[in-house]
């Protein structure tokens, strides 16, 4: 594991940033999986170069109002709501 590009501490740090609670065993397991995933990307180094499409620039829309979602529609997938608000756990 020592030569792995991602160690358990780094996994734990990223999990903390995403407010995900991992125990040490989880962190070790994910570290190993990350190493495998990064290895898969090495395959891209073998892909021959091809001509790429020209890059788009200045893709914009006019400043005109379009109809969006109703409050009911906006909230319909929310696990919890209250008085038209999305409701979640307290945060600080």
């Amino acid at each position: 594991m020592s030569d792995s590009p991602v160690d358990a501490d780094e996994v734990q740090h990223v999990a903390d940033l995403a407010r995900v609670d991992l125990d040490d065993a989880d962190a070790d397991e994910f570290a190993a999986q990350f190493a495998d995933i990064l290895d898969y990307f090495a395959a891209l180094d073998e892909v021959p170069e091809v001509d790429s499409d020209p890059e788009l620039v200045n893709v914009m829309r006019a400043d005109e109002v379009e109809e969006g979602l109703s409050q009911d529609e906006a909230l319909q997938n929310a696990p919890e709501t209250e008085d038209g608000f999305f409701k979640g756990p307290s945060v600080s």
Partner: peptide
């Protein structure tokens, strides 16, 4: 609340942002 939203500003999967000129 939540009366001026759409898939883009709610971050729904697959929604794509387009910049306001």
């Amino acid at each position: 609340p939540n009366s001026r939203t759409c898939p883009v500003c709610l971050g729904l999967p697959g929604a794509l942002p387009v910049l306001n000129e």
